[in-house]
Simulated scan of single mutants.
Amino acid sequence: MHRSLALIFLFSILLLSAVNLRAQVDELSEVTGLPIPLGTSAIYGQVTFRGRKSTDREPVVFVTLMMGGTQIDRRQTLKNGYYFFLTKAQDSATLLFEVDGAEVGRVILSAGISNRLRQDVTFDWKALERENRTTTGVISAKYNYPRAAKTEKIFEKAMAAVKDDKNDDAIKLFEELLAADPKDFFAWTMLGTIQFAEKNNAKAEEALKKAIALKPDFPLALINLGKLEMSRGDLAAAVNVLTTAVESEPDSAEANHMLGEALLQAKKGSLAVGFLNKALELAPIEKAEIHLRLAALYNGAGLKDRAVAEYKMFLKKVKDHPEKKRIEKYIKENSPK
């Protein structure tokens, strides 16, 4: 009798465990639409926008997985806002989020017991719209390119394909457009940006450099070429092209941010600080995550009082960050007694 009860109890535990694991697998498979095998390691989550209406434009969102300062993978979110990487999270791995070509935040991951980690993020839509209009330099009128009616129609179709996550279609449409008008620097920029997203780095570099040859001061092309150079570890080239981006558009928070980041990765922290602080000055809320980078820099240099100050400024701006408890613990342990 006791043996039968024990077997029933054990079977119940195994059944419940199987149900829980199945629910986890079903969730990931359901949100991605892919038959992901049982037990596959994954980092995934959903990107949402607080305050965005259904009638607002659809943003183009990319998520990059960084480990040890190196880009591991970069993906565009699915139509439902989900992203995923089929790998196990490691301590201090970082997720970098970009919206419409501009970095808007980073999250530092903590490895847990499970081989799957879900990390949802929410951004303020109105704040991002202000950032796009005033600081990135992407939509400035001086960078408009006049198109004929035929190529304008192709351009609109290509942009719609990008927003629908149909990058193959978008590439073909931009190539069609450029065959008709090879001087369209904005189309070259978009083609290069999409190729970069698809990890076709050689084609991305070629397209972005053609855009820059046609419009040497176009910040979006310069910034994205700088990101490409950073992704493959050519920090000297990244610093060079991002310096040109800042010179072209001094009031671009994104250009200042990326130049500061490239200098940080090149271990030139003293030079990086000025550009990172300029990005914060231009976009204090949208670029709040820079405080975390500065805090890490100061902590590594033994300047814990400055790290505490950066962490405090960050928590004033971002009150519900996933790492809030860890940050508060650091502040408490390193503040003057």
Score class of each variant (00 low, 15 high):
L5F: 15
M67K: 11
F97G: 01
Q24I: 11
K278T: 03
Y311Q: 13
L28F: 09
P146G: 15
T134L: 10
A149V: 13
I154R: 10
Y330M: 04
S12T: 11
L225A: 04
M313W: 13
R147V: 01
V61R: 06
I331F: 06
H2I: 05
A141L: 15
F275Y: 15
L220F: 07
K210C: 07
R74T: 06
P216Y: 08
T87M: 02
V318A: 09
L95A: 02
L65E: 09
T134Y: 08
K209G: 10
I194N: 04
L34Y: 12
I290D: 02
K304D: 13
L222V: 00
L65S: 06
D26T: 13
I223R: 10
A179W: 07
L297Y: 15
D305G: 07
G105P: 01
F85Y: 02
E310G: 04
L280N: 02
L208S: 04
N334V: 00
M159Q: 15
A283D: 00
H291A: 02
L16F: 01
K332A: 15
Q76N: 06
K126Q: 15
E58L: 12
G105T: 09
N334Y: 05
M67G: 11
K227D: 15
E175A: 09
I194G: 04
G39P: 03
D320K: 01
Q195H: 11
E129S: 14
E247L: 06
E58C: 12
S17Q: 07
Y83R: 08
D251I: 08
D164G: 08
T193C: 00
F9R: 11
I13M: 05
L5M: 09
F97W: 05
F84L: 02
T70L: 03
F9M: 14
A148T: 14
T32A: 11
N132L: 03
L242Y: 12
M67C: 07
A148H: 11
V31W: 10
E229F: 12
E249V: 10
K183W: 08
S29K: 01
P284T: 09
F84W: 05
D164P: 01
P182L: 05
A93L: 12
E30H: 12
I8L: 10
N277T: 06
S29P: 02
K325H: 13
Q76G: 08
L280D: 01
K142I: 12
K227R: 11
G105S: 11
S231F: 09
Q46I: 12
W125L: 06
L7K: 15
H2C: 10
A253H: 03
K153E: 14
K317R: 13
S41C: 04
A272S: 07
L14C: 10
F11Y: 02
R116G: 04
K88Y: 02
S54V: 14
N224F: 06
A237T: 06
A272G: 02
G300D: 07
T122V: 10
E289M: 05
A111T: 08
F9E: 05
G105K: 00
A204C: 13
K316P: 00
E156C: 03
K142F: 13
